[in-house]
């Protein structure tokens, strides 16, 4: 009898370390964030709060800074995701079609991933420089007047997007190239024997067969773009000029780290709302993916 009971419990014993880890480091914080978001007028140091309710959510939604942050974030996702995905698909396809120097190229496009993003971000800061930057220099060759990329509210969002696209390209390309390499070359042979031209092969065969990888890339990149925050520091050392580049994660950070006294409740509510948006976007994506595969 005892041994049978043990047999039943055994799998859970094996799982125990993992479950404990997840509980402490993932589950507990999540539950706590949800709880915090519902506690009104919560004071972290004393632990006082006036009661449970949706007050924090209301305050956050009505906060003009939060609205701006959410607007910026959505705009950022809407610009960076399509451009970076399209670029990455094209670059990956070209790279995959080059049979020589494959190894060398693979190291080359892996480079941005292994170099420190912050260090390279600083290099971008020089490149974006109003007076000496190489970007303005190149543009001037085409007769475009100098743009104050980092110093003007009109253009610093573009600079952020350019940098953001550059930063997620390598990882995206690597995933896509591995996806491309999983496509059996016989499909290409079959299409070529029938006389299909490269463009048709690309749109009718490569893209559909690569779709699962593209959707994976979309999911991963969407999540990382919604959390845009790190990218602000090397370029602007903060959220742009006069907070014009406030993003949701920056807003969260601001609420409980910059403000005194820190507003933990508001930060938690904002975090949950960001989660809600990411969740909805991902559901939409899964829905489209299912529709397309049928």
């Amino acid at each position: 009898m005892k041994s049978r009971f043990f047999e039943k419990v055994k799998p859970f014993l094996y799982l125990a370390p993992f479950i404990v880890g997840v509980t402490i480091f993932t589950l507990y914080p999540i539950v706590n964030v949800v709880k915090m978001s519902l506690m009104e007028n919560y004071k972290y140091l004393t632990g006082d709060f006036t009661g449970y309710g949706f007050g924090n959510f209301k305050t956050v939604i009505e906060d003009q800074y939060f609205r701006q942050a959410m607007g910026n974030t959505l705009k950022y996702v809407a610009v960076v995701i399509p451009i970076s995905t399209c670029l990455a698909v094209v670059i990956a396809t070209l790279l995959n079609s080059i049979k020589k120097f494959q190894a060398l190229l693979q190291t080359a496009y892996f480079l941005p991933m292994v170099t420190s993003v912050t260090a390279v971000g600083l290099a971008w800061r020089f490149m974006f420089n109003y007076k000496q930057g190489v970007i303005n220099y190149v543009l001037s060759l085409f007769g475009v007047p100098a743009i104050d990329w980092l110093g003007a509210t009109a253009s610093n969002f573009s600079a952020l997007c350019v940098y953001g696209i550059w930063a997620i390209l390598p990882f995206t390309i690597i995933l896509l190239v591995s996806g491309l390499q999983n496509i059996d070359p016989m499909y290409y042979t079959a299409a070529k024997v029938d006389g299909a031209k490269p463009l048709r092969i690309f749109f009718r065969i490569t893209i559909p067969l690569l779709a699962p990888t593209i959707f994976l890339v979309l999911t991963v990149n969407c999540i990382s773009c919604f959390k845009v925050y790190n990218e602000l520091f090397p370029l602007f050392a903060g959220p742009g000029i006069a907070y014009n580049l406030f993003t949701v994660v920056y807003y969260i950070y601001y609420e409980f780290r910059v403000l005194t006294p820190a507003k933990y409740g508001l930060a938690a509510a904002a975090a949950l709302m960001l989660f809600g948006v990411i969740f909805v976007v991902n559901m939409l994506k899964s829905f489209v993916e299912k529709k397309l595969s049928n």
Binding site: D184, M186, Y187, T189, A190, K192, V193, D194, G195, A196, I205, P208, L209
Partner: peptide, 15 residues
């Protein structure tokens, strides 16, 4: 594609 041939593969190669 100009030869006017049809090819059947061992693994079918159906898309």
């Amino acid at each position: 594609d100009q030869r006017g041939i049809g090819l059947v593969f061992q693994n079918y190669a159906l898309y």
